[in-house]
Nucleic acid binder design. Structure first.
Length: 109
DNA sequence: CTCTTGACTGAGG
DNA sequence: GCCTCAGCCAAGA
């Protein structure tokens, strides 16, 4: 675990916290925003340790709007419930109107 | 050290 | 649109 990796983890959490209410983004978008050469996979891996942080990990999905990380949440459909609670429409672990609720961290600049 | 496993993604058929 | 393949790379066994 290099210092750069730790910094990367913190950056991921920092970006994730900036995701607006009712919006979502993808692992790749975050990776691209951070210029992460480790790739989107590491973003997902970073989220693995986001449990005891104030990170809305449920707003981060894969590029198709699929809730690939729902099994990392407590219960079976907690992630979906959280998203629906924010006014999002989720069917079969997939976010509906994904292109409309998608939020690219690049817009933060 | 090697091998496997992923909360991924883009390209090609 | 679907499926498959190949890069990607940190962590754990």
């Amino acid at each position: 675990m290099t210092p750069e990796t730790l910094n990367f983890f913190d950056k991921v959490y920092e970006v994730a916290r900036q995701i607006p209410y009712g919006r979502v983004t993808s692992y790749g978008a975050i990776a691209n925003f951070l210029g992460a050469k480790h790739g989107a996979r590491m973003v997902g891996y970073a989220m693995n340790g986001s449990h005891n942080k104030d990170v809305p990990a449920h707003r981060v999905v894969n590029r198709k709007g699929l809730l690939t990380g729902k099994h990392h949440f407590q219960g079976t459909n907690l992630m979906q419930q959280l998203l629906e609670n924010e006014g999002l429409e989720v069917v079969e672990n997939q976010i509906q109107n994904f292109d409309k609720v998608f939020w690219d961290p690049i817009q933060l600049l």
